[in-house]
Simulated assay, not measured.
Amino acid sequence: MTSTTTFSIEAHGLTKRYGAKTAVDNLSFGVAPGKVTGFLGPNGAGKSTTMRLLLGLERPDAGTALINRKPYASLTAPLSQVGALLEAKAFHKGRSARNHLLCLAQSQALPLSRVDEVIDMVGLRDAAKQRAGGYSLGMAQRLGIAAALLGDPRVIILDEPVNGLDPEGILWIRTLMKRLAAEGRTVLVSSHLMNEMAVTADHLLVIGRGRLLADCTTAQFIERYTDPAVYAATPAVARPALLEEAFMRLTAGAVEYATR
């Protein structure tokens, strides 16, 4: 991190242990507004734990996690500052989508008109009065994104937001994230879909075994970690497709759950 860059999300020496296992290991990074930042790593790398630390859902054993230069617990009206999707089906299954969002809005003194705005934004108007417990995974993802955007926050954190979405839904969330970033918001998104990150993320944070492995633009990452001969032989327009190879080369020694 550089002193000249303003970050909306910051991690400073974050460490989190569960017994003998260190899930996050002295992790430091910053996420700037105005771009989509992809948060990548193999299974078990510590991505979800890091996001939970940023949002105050876990307490670090060492280090600090800041949103707009404050710990999440110190934020005033947090839903108006940061919106997050960590678990698609984190709602009362007996409530309708609209009632779920109404409860959230009332808890933060948000205008109730915002509920219908985000329902329309995520394409759930026709299903808004149905019990959310009957939603497919893709519909649940849309409801989770609606909840994340309810307070019109400047910081958005999304954990695997395209899970369960059909091709139209994937294109929609990609376009949405790019639009939010273009509005000057801070967008941090984790994903296992390298092809999707290649066309969505402007910047990448890559971790392995809880440690930072890379912090650079997507184009820089592909150039640095792709086989030089392959990179040179690939037309510039096709180089985003090399992200998966670059990711595999960098994280080969940090895979915790590997087949033999």
Rank of each mutant, 00 (worst) to 15 (best):
G63Y: 14
R131M: 11
Q141E: 00
T49R: 03
A109I: 00
A77V: 12
G83A: 13
K129I: 00
G56D: 13
A109T: 00
G44T: 10
L79G: 01
R114Y: 08
Y72L: 13
D126N: 00
G94N: 13
L86A: 01
N68L: 15
I67M: 11
A65V: 10
M121E: 14
M139H: 07
L79A: 08
Y135W: 06
K93V: 10
V122H: 15
A45G: 08
P78E: 14
G138L: 12
F91C: 01
R95G: 02
S107W: 06
K93T: 10
T50A: 14
R114E: 12
Q141R: 04
L101A: 02
R142A: 06
Y135F: 15
S74I: 00
A84T: 03
E117S: 07
G123Y: 07
T64I: 07
G46E: 09
L86I: 08
L79C: 04
P111A: 01
Y135G: 10
R95L: 15
P78F: 14
K70S: 06
L101R: 03
H100Y: 15
G44S: 05
D126P: 04
R125H: 11
P60K: 08
L104P: 03
I119P: 00
D120P: 01
P60E: 06
P111E: 05
G44D: 15
A132M: 04
G44A: 10
G63F: 15
Q108D: 03
A132Y: 11
L104D: 04
P71T: 11
K129Q: 11
S107I: 06
K129L: 08
K70A: 13
P60L: 12
I119S: 04
G123I: 09
K47W: 15
L101C: 05
G123R: 14
D126E: 13
L85N: 11
